[in-house]
Amino acid sequence: MKRRHFLAATGAAGLAAHTASAQTYPEKPIRIVVPNPTGGSADYVARFFQTPLQRILGQGVAIANVVGGGTSIGNRQVRDAAPDGHTVLAIHQALLTAATLKVMDFGPEAFAPVAQVATEYTAVVVNRKAAYQTLPAVIAAAKAGDLKAGVQIGAINHFLFLSLSDATGTKFRYVNTGGGGPTRTALAGGHVDVAFLTVNEAKPLVDSGDLAIVALFAPSRLPAWPNLPTAREQGTDLLLNLSYWWWMPKATPRDRVDRFAEALRTGSQEPEIVAKFAEFNMVPAFLKGAELEAEITRQYENMKALAARNNVTAG
């Protein structure tokens, strides 16, 4: 708070001073804002990096779960923070979906993208007792009658379904069961028929014999799950993944953004994090700079087109 007012008062002079002292960055502990609750995949990825970042940057790194308003509160807080590189946002495509649906009155353009560290492919999951246990069977069932899809309206798991129905010409009936955790519970209880989950989210209930993973929307099979077929193998050529992105306030000096991005690159090559990614079935996929911006723009445009075709915009 104090910091922000100080900056507002000193204005451009303050910014200039910051740039001059860029090689001293970071000067104080860094705050990573995760706009999701503790225990979601966006939160895990941020927490993987907490200790390595502290070591690499030589400063404390705190993680704050700023929850509410479908990620918009945390996003807003980072957008409005002092652009000095000490406040970072860690979030996947939720930033794009919230903007596409106009839940927030700003989108990715209000931030400086820092880096992408990994992607995680998602899978279509059904109840073990269901009559459809392959992707073609699911699509046929969806065409025949309405399959209830467990989603959080307007969130990424909803957009994944929109992509699938767009690509295959099917329709689903959407039921607002929430994020990955509650949705998989509803699926196991037979309250919805189909859901998009990450393999990691589905695992405990697959082990218990309640759920079955039908298809992974990845280019190839996962090393840890050699028996899990991809969607491509089953005739639907579609890649659907979560992209773990990091952002800073728009006006953050370029060299600070870059310093943090490099720290993330170094961190993501450390054995500890490589092991974590493997454990969580995430795929390391580092991007920064122009490449990252192109990837974000590509996904954002796709999403907007999808929302327009399916007539989904909230007010």
Partner: peptide, 8 residues
Amino acid sequence: NQPRAPFD
């Protein structure tokens, strides 16, 4: 003036 919700 709450708009209609598309899926609800």
